[in-house]
Nucleic acid binder design. Sequence first.
DNA 1: TGTACATCAGTGAACGCGCGTTCACTGATGTAC
DNA 2: TGTACATCAGTGAACGCGCGTTCACTGATGTAC
Lengths: 197, 197
Amino acid sequence: VSTSSAGGGYHHGDLRAACLTAALGLLEEGDQANVSLRAVARRAGVSPTAPYRHYPDKDSLLAALATHGNEELRECLVKADATATPGDEFVVLAQAYVAYAVAHPALFRLMFDHACTKSNPETAASAAAVTEVLAARVSEAVPPERRQAFMIGCWALVHGLGSLLLNGKLNSSSPDEVADLTRTVVSTMLGSTNHAH
Amino acid sequence: VSTSSAGGGYHHGDLRAACLTAALGLLEEGDQANVSLRAVARRAGVSPTAPYRHYPDKDSLLAALATHGNEELRECLVKADATATPGDEFVVLAQAYVAYAVAHPALFRLMFDHACTKSNPETAASAAAVTEVLAARVSEAVPPERRQAFMIGCWALVHGLGSLLLNGKLNSSSPDEVADLTRTVVSTMLGSTNHAH
DNA sequence: TGTACATCAGTGAACGCGCGTTCACTGATGTAC
DNA sequence: TGTACATCAGTGAACGCGCGTTCACTGATGTAC
């Protein structure tokens, strides 16, 4: 029962990873409805039923996709966090979060919307790991009694900003505009005092 | 070319409205994938193609659904706004917005996610009318140079809070818990000074 | 080093499904005279 | 008041589609001896 999906050169290469790649491509090109097991197989150059050797059903593939997205988003946040300068942390984290949402709209929706996301434990764990990056900074900056509310508020703010942007509810097209808007909005909402201490 | 959909008693009643009602029911019971023209017709007790007498295609039905939701949400906001006491406005508006999202998850997603929402002018107008309720309060409370950022921030905050809640990312089940959480989070994020003047 | 065999990744035909949409129709309503 | 007719809401058969999933299979890989 090996769970390794990397490396290899099986029969026809690493089909498990190829399915993920194919599904990500379909997701970036359209929406979630664009991702069918048959389309994934087609794009991976394989028969319609080959993916069943690696995923028990369609929801498993989607869950794997969401897990991948959560891990990628977490990495973005960690990287951004590492480059933050004092006083900058929340803006930088927010920019990373929003940038990811805008760059991968369909995947972002899948990560947060889809039912399989909640039922799959691995996916749920990867989702929890995302918020921990933010929670760590909040713990540093906010006194214990306000931590929970502040944490949820920050998350809601960036999540909402990302959602509104990727659904075209705000006028910001380029990544730079998105980053500027995020900085302005987050600064305004958090105030100059940053709610710290 | 009468656009009236109310009143009546046609051949078999007001099928236009019946389709909307049926579609809303399907939406509340499941997700957007649950709404097919055929299912709508079935639930309205009518042949599979009867809805085509009232909607040129499926997207038109969905757009009408989204328009309905936007109008309903706007009414909730206006009503909440009218009951607000001084200093309370943003919390009360936020509670109304979040409560609507949580009460109508699938419709809320449709209103903000779906592509037909943007291409249909009537739907787009009804969506714009929603934010105007919030914008009016922001204009009263915030100096001009911070209005836009504050407006977007508030919207993102409540939209994000609603999204996270309806996707089960936060632990709040009952309407009361949702209202309390919303109050706490919004108060924390806006601070005690309310950013006014 | 060479043969026999188990494993299991990938195949391809087939299933039943519900979908959106078209088309020619039917039959009730309401108007013109 | 009564008949002829236009309108048009609703019908039902039919289309072609892609889907998720099953099943018995095939054929390459890798191990045991």
